[in-house]
Write a protein that binds this DNA or RNA. Structure first.
Lengths: 332, 332
DNA sequence: CTGAAAGCGCTAACAC
DNA sequence: GTGTTAGCGCTTTCAG
């Protein structure tokens, strides 16, 4: 954006056509005679002409850019989602503006507004706490949004997820069948929509169905050291099985147990949500494996349809998950 | 970008001023009388006016957007670099367009060209293989570029790194002092600039200095399973100490050894480059800890200066690293 | 099949 | 302090 750029006008003059014709060639419009097209192409290549996407965006009102709103890039959960999104975005030739919203100077709705001001054609939202202000900002501009790996509590926005409640229940039953009765839930944020509306209800239902009392929910456990420090409390509370929402936290708990010379899974069974990390630690962690890449890919594909006003049959997609039994639950 | 947007003109009409005045208010220009400013602000808030950044970009020739070129989002090495970049970008109010370039439908220079067409004000490049075509594309537009955690072989571009040669040498000496004599190097890509010009020379020099012969370099080992499968070959080759460039690959080697009932570090010492992963596996991995977050942050800060044509004293910055001794080398 | 002309929404001289 | 006026580089009718 500093050197004198070659513009469409330079190409037009050099090829002795109007800028409209150059525009047609650039955009693959078929209404151009073959030899005209070739002449223009020759000039384009010779001058290294590249269309200015900002000008295109202003004139056409479409930027072929989508916004990604993500809490933290270094969380593999979001990184794997993003990879799925990115691959599909590439296919449909969308660029990605990424905005992180955790611990920020800027509030979430400001971050989103900044994205909208860049005139993104659509957005994918991956955090678990869509605020009302943020939702309103989206609705004001009518920009299509898809939630990937999360939901809003009013289901107003399109989303791609797994059935969290079913997955968690399956995990609890696994541990219950291993004879565990003091089952706890370890999460990062009880107010997050998925926790409030899926994980916590699933936990309560499981506990009630098996007459296991109130149980224990440990909130605010999101990283390795949170998990590492939590272990002694779990022991104190007599917990013998846990479902942990973040696998990096689960690894903290695991290592804390191992460092204390405890036996996993004998003394405590652990089930978590899998990223890369769950399977590379030893003992490896039994985990609910969400198809993160696919969730991202499907969300982005859906977004492309919404951006083009194409028909979308189902805007609340559930993808299948797997419960991968590894070494942190009993061998059977 | 679909609903009728409020434009600067609507605000001007409503506030009974010219669009120039609205522009001044929006951009914090002080040459506006207080009561005029307040009247305009009131209208802006009432109408929810938000400036169209695309139009601003076209008119001002600055988009306040920077491009990030990164091989893979799910590689924590790049994720941690990106986080440092992102935090500084936020402070200076730049948005980030991210482009991944590994295993892509699109070649690297096309990906970069697409970024440049969006008129980014600058770019940060994190891959290890800046191609000539890509470099030429940058130079053609005169867009400032900073390399983060990598270098180009001609040192034409600004960069922020550590002293790889020194770090590796320190790692080799550690293992040598533990009595290891069959030291090998395990890397992802021998043609990568940092490997070709820093890691390999450091390895050769170490081997020569200690009369250890030619040694063994294992190339193309980049992920967990690459590492896992490599272990038996290392044993076959009589290797008793390795420096591994990617910690996820190192974990593969480690687990392969553990699964085979071998003792680490007794039978093989391992040193790697640290991300989050190196410290959460057991035994934990001795590692060269690059200040990845800082590298990203410093690179982005330097880029802001370059974008504003400010003086930059040193465009090839070396940051300090640490060699963290953990359980994969002998206790001392 | 091609060209002319009117914007897209904003910034930035330049006047007053 | 404020308004007028050219563009920024492109797309998109509308004619022909």
């Amino acid at each position: 954006m500093r050197k004198q750029e070659i513009t469409i006008y330079d190409v037009a003059r050099e090829a002795k056509v109007s800028m409209a014709t150059v525009s047609r060639v650039v955009n693959g419009n078929t209404n151009v005679r073959k030899d005209t097209r070739e002449r223009v192409m020759e000039v384009i290549n010779r001058l290294h002409y590249q269309p200015n996407a900002v000008a295109q965006g202003l004139a056409s009102k479409r930027t072929t850019t989508v916004g990604l709103i993500v809490p933290d890039l270094t969380d593999l959960y979001f990184a794997e989602l993003s990879k799925g999104i990115d691959d599909i975005a590439l296919i449909y030739k969308y660029n990605i503006i990424i905005t992180t919203i955790e611990n920020r100077l800027m509030k979430e709705d400001q971050a989103i507004q900044s994205l909208l001001n860049k005139q993104v054609d659509g957005a994918i939202y991956m955090s678990d706490r869509l605020s009302k202000e943020a939702a309103d900002a989206f609705k004001r501009t009518d920009t299509p949004v898809v939630l990937a790996g999360t939901k809003d509590n009013r289901q107003e926005f399109a989303s791609v997820t797994i059935d969290y409640q079913k997955a968690d229940t399956e995990a609890y039953n696994l541990m219950y069948n291993d004879g565990k009765r003091n089952v706890a839930l370890v999460i990062a944020d009880a107010n997050a929509v998925v926790n409030a509306e899926n994980r916590l209800p699933a936990y309560k239902k499981f506990m009630a169905d098996h007459d296991l009392g109130e149980g224990h929910v440990y909130d605010n456990i999101k990283d390795y050291s949170d998990g590492y420090n939590l272990y002694s409390q779990l022991v104190k509370d007599g917990i013998d099985a846990i479902l942990v929402s973040h696998d990096i936290a689960a690894v903290g708990i695991l290592n804390s147990a191992m460092d204390a010379g405890k036996k996993i899974p004998e003394e405590m069974e652990i089930v978590t949500n899998a990223t890369q990390i769950a399977s590379v630690v030893r003992p490896s962690l039994t985990a609910i494996k969400q198809p993160l890449y696919d969730i991202g890919a499907v969300a982005m594909r859906m977004l492309t349809k919404l951006m083009r006003d194409e028909e979308v049959a189902d805007t609340h997609i559930l993808l299948p998950y797997e419960l991968l039994k590894k070494q942190s639950t009993a061998n059977q």
